[in-house]
């Protein structure tokens, strides 16, 4: 039961992220939605590698051989860094958009049709 808890959290995070991106019109909230979506995927990755009772996957002085998987942790670390870059770029774009138009509403757009 406790093992399934992270996956439930993943579903909640993904749903929250999609809700924010689709239904919120504030640009900053859209970025927050993207980041929550990213966190959900990261949590999914990291909980895939969890083994009950496992220790950190470092072979030197390991007390026992039951270890959590190291690869998902490496993947998650990479993806966290990438998410950081993406969110930073999006926020800087929002900053420039706000300077230009003094508005953060996504419905206040110029490109359509």
């Amino acid at each position: 039961m406790l093992i399934d808890l992270p996956f439930l959290a993943v579903v909640v995070l993904l749903a929250l992220g999609v809700y924010a991106v689709v239904f919120r019109h504030n640009l900053i909230k859209i970025v927050m939605g993207v980041h929550i979506l990213g966190s959900g995927v990261n949590l999914f990755l990291i909980s895939l590698g969890y083994r009950e009772g496992g220790v950190a996957p470092i072979f030197t002085h390991a007390p026992k051989l039951e270890m959590v998987l190291p690869t998902p942790q490496a993947l998650t670390l990479t993806s966290i860094v990438i998410n950081l870059a993406v969110v930073a770029l999006m926020l800087s774009l929002i900053m420039l958009i706000y300077k230009r138009y003094k508005s953060l509403d996504s419905r206040d757009r110029r490109l359509m049709g």
């Binding site: 859209i30 757009r109 049709g113």
Partner: peptide, 17 residues
């Protein structure tokens, strides 16, 4: 068609979903 191409980012994501 022009009404569908609203230009709002939320709609773009909704179409993708």
């Amino acid at each position: 068609m022009v009404n569908l191409h609203t230009g709002v980012i939320n709609d773009y994501v909704a179409w993708f979903i």
